[in-house]
Simulated scan of single mutants.
Amino acid sequence: MGVAGCGKSAVGEALAAALGAVFVEGDRLHPPENVARMASGEPLTDALREGWLDAIGQRIAGSVGSGQGVVAACSALKRSYRERLRGFCHDIVFLYLEIDPATAKQRVGARQGHFMPASLVDSQFATLEAPATDENALTLDATRPIADIVADVISLFEANS
């Protein structure tokens, strides 16, 4: 979880591969209306995110229900969004990929073929509620190499299992 440009997809894909888990790309589950809105530079409202969060939650629950491990890339910017996802899988662990606004804007601006413009990065930071200590979440430095982030996550999971 985290703002646009923090590396959710890249870290998520690598982590899923390392764990032999299913990878769910949250961006692919946005309805066309949401994609069009964001592509035009308009941030999503809480109401517009509800169906999208439910689609991600259903994919997570489906994988868990069939006995598969799952890693999902989803901004989950607010506590309420994370709670909505927990409604589908109560023991979900969030990996918060923490990044500064300048780096996030640079990364989003450099992406090719993605609907999210760099102009929306500030709105993501304005919406962001970093996970609180009572949430089941790990905070990781998103500027580190992906392989290092994945190795740290696996080590943390192994130490807590």
Rank of each mutant, 00 (worst) to 15 (best):
6 C>Y: 08
10 A>K: 10
14 A>I: 11
14 A>S: 14
18 A>K: 04
19 L>Q: 14
25 E>S: 04
26 G>S: 08
28 R>W: 00
29 L>T: 07
34 N>V: 05
37 R>I: 10
37 R>Q: 15
39 A>R: 03
45 T>H: 10
46 D>H: 02
48 L>H: 06
51 G>S: 05
53 L>P: 12
53 L>G: 11
57 G>D: 12
58 Q>D: 13
60 I>N: 13
62 G>P: 12
63 S>A: 15
63 S>D: 08
63 S>E: 08
68 Q>C: 02
70 V>D: 14
72 A>K: 01
81 Y>C: 12
81 Y>H: 15
82 R>K: 11
83 E>A: 08
85 L>A: 06
85 L>S: 03
85 L>W: 00
87 G>F: 10
88 F>K: 00
93 V>L: 13
96 Y>N: 12
100 D>V: 07
101 P>R: 15
101 P>W: 04
103 T>S: 05
110 A>V: 10
111 R>H: 02
111 R>L: 02
112 Q>N: 10
112 Q>T: 13
113 G>C: 04
114 H>M: 07
114 H>G: 08
115 F>N: 13
117 P>G: 08
118 A>M: 11
121 V>Y: 02
121 V>M: 01
125 F>E: 12
129 E>K: 01
135 E>W: 11
137 A>C: 13
145 P>Q: 07
146 I>F: 03
152 D>F: 05
153 V>H: 04
154 I>C: 13
158 E>L: 08
